[in-house]
Simulated scan of single mutants.
Amino acid sequence: MDIPRVAHRFVEVEGVRVFYREAGPLDAPVLLLLHGFPSASHQYRRLIDALGTRYRVIAPDYPGFGHTEAPEGFSYTFDRLADITEGFLERLGLARFVMYVFDFGAPVGFRLAERHPEWIAGLVVQNGNAYEEGLSDGARSFVALRPEQPGAEQTIRELLTLQGTRGQYEGGTSDPELVAPDGWTLDQHFLDQPGRAEAQVALAFDYKSNVESYPRWQAWLREHTPPALVVWGRNDPFFPEPGARAYLRDLPEAELHVFDTGHFALEENLPEIAPLVADFLDRAWKR
């Protein structure tokens, strides 16, 4: 039985103590796992177990998430999350990898791709949106919130409650019994730490910068045409299925698989998704 040894480490980047998980041979193809909201690298634990003997798998926590420690006064914007992730990759000497982007991982990852197209050997996109049609009505209303708007911050903070966090994991699933409670319980633990809610409020107000960047990211896809695997939970209340199919407009050769689940598709469909990712890694790395 092949089971990977997973190391849990920290590296210093611009005063941020970045936590990350790593498994796999140092000379193997690299898979960078970029997590979503409101989670952290722990959301990929089972995927790391599935892939971490054949590939070098690396999953960091962003500032404001998980075990990563940011200094007081850190500016929580998506540009800054990308800055720290970029510095993290440079510290590890990673210059070529397949990038798995989910939720917040998409705006972080596409910023990295714009800055360093030579780093990207391929893309795995899982409920990571880059298209207007991939925004539900609820997501559009959320993105439209502004700090000066009465009640806007309270609306964001309601999403940071245990009920809101659990709903993101179980909403849209075909069988909630397949969703382990550990994920949303641990996420809530981190959300309840001092300063974490304020970080998430700042990022929520900055999310409009991602939507404004969609045309640039789409142009990047058309120009660089990276090999791509798109896997998607069709019942995602934030990023519905049209967002998955939109990638085919700019990457017509991308492979698309849609599953009857919600936002955190790996929670319910890891047995189906992990082999797809492994097969894609083998093909992308041979290009």
Score class of each variant (00 low, 15 high):
residue 61 D to R: 02
residue 81 L to W: 09
residue 45 R to Q: 14
residue 272 E to G: 00
residue 213 S to K: 13
residue 126 Q to W: 09
residue 104 F to P: 01
residue 88 F to G: 06
residue 40 A to V: 01
residue 80 R to K: 15
residue 1 M to E: 13
residue 82 A to P: 04
residue 30 V to L: 15
residue 177 E to A: 14
residue 114 E to T: 04
residue 226 P to A: 10
residue 142 F to V: 03
residue 131 Y to F: 13
residue 176 P to G: 00
residue 105 G to C: 14
residue 254 A to M: 12
residue 245 R to F: 07
residue 286 K to L: 02
residue 189 H to N: 06
residue 276 L to C: 03
residue 252 P to M: 12
residue 110 F to H: 03
residue 157 R to I: 06
residue 52 G to N: 13
residue 113 A to T: 04
residue 213 S to M: 14
residue 201 V to Y: 02
residue 286 K to E: 11
residue 233 G to A: 11
residue 106 A to I: 09
residue 275 P to A: 11
residue 34 L to W: 08
residue 233 G to V: 01
residue 164 G to V: 02
residue 231 V to W: 02
residue 135 L to V: 01
residue 83 D to Q: 10
residue 20 Y to R: 10
residue 60 P to E: 10
residue 211 V to R: 11
residue 168 Q to F: 10
residue 258 V to R: 05
residue 96 R to D: 12
residue 92 L to Q: 08
residue 287 R to A: 09
residue 217 W to T: 13
residue 40 A to T: 04
residue 102 F to R: 03
residue 277 V to R: 08
residue 138 G to I: 04
residue 143 V to I: 15
residue 227 P to C: 09
residue 124 V to I: 15
residue 198 E to C: 13
residue 110 F to Q: 01
residue 196 R to S: 14
residue 53 T to K: 13
residue 79 D to T: 13
residue 286 K to V: 05
residue 269 N to G: 02
residue 284 A to K: 10
residue 125 V to I: 15
residue 274 A to E: 00
residue 186 L to T: 07
residue 229 L to D: 04
residue 161 T to C: 04
residue 23 A to Q: 07
residue 68 T to I: 10
residue 72 E to R: 14
residue 162 L to K: 07
residue 59 A to E: 06
residue 22 E to L: 13
residue 118 E to C: 08
residue 180 A to R: 07
residue 236 D to G: 08
residue 20 Y to E: 05
residue 189 H to F: 14
residue 259 F to W: 06
residue 252 P to V: 12
residue 117 P to Q: 11
residue 284 A to D: 11
residue 17 R to P: 06
residue 206 D to K: 01
residue 25 P to H: 13
residue 222 R to D: 04
residue 254 A to P: 09
residue 213 S to H: 15
residue 170 E to W: 04
residue 207 Y to S: 11
residue 13 V to S: 01
residue 245 R to N: 05
residue 99 M to W: 07
residue 169 Y to C: 06
residue 229 L to H: 07
residue 178 L to P: 00
residue 77 T to G: 09
residue 282 D to M: 11
residue 237 P to N: 11
residue 228 A to S: 15
residue 88 F to M: 08
residue 130 A to M: 05
residue 47 L to D: 05
residue 85 T to A: 00
residue 18 V to M: 15
residue 118 E to L: 07
residue 77 T to D: 06
residue 251 L to V: 11
residue 143 V to H: 06
residue 2 D to V: 12
residue 203 L to V: 08
residue 246 A to F: 05
residue 237 P to V: 13
residue 18 V to S: 07
residue 122 G to P: 10
residue 102 F to D: 02
residue 52 G to V: 13
residue 101 V to N: 07
residue 45 R to L: 14
residue 194 P to W: 03
residue 69 E to F: 07
residue 254 A to H: 11
residue 274 A to N: 02
residue 286 K to W: 01
residue 202 A to M: 12
residue 115 R to C: 03
residue 178 L to H: 03
residue 283 R to I: 03
residue 280 F to Q: 09
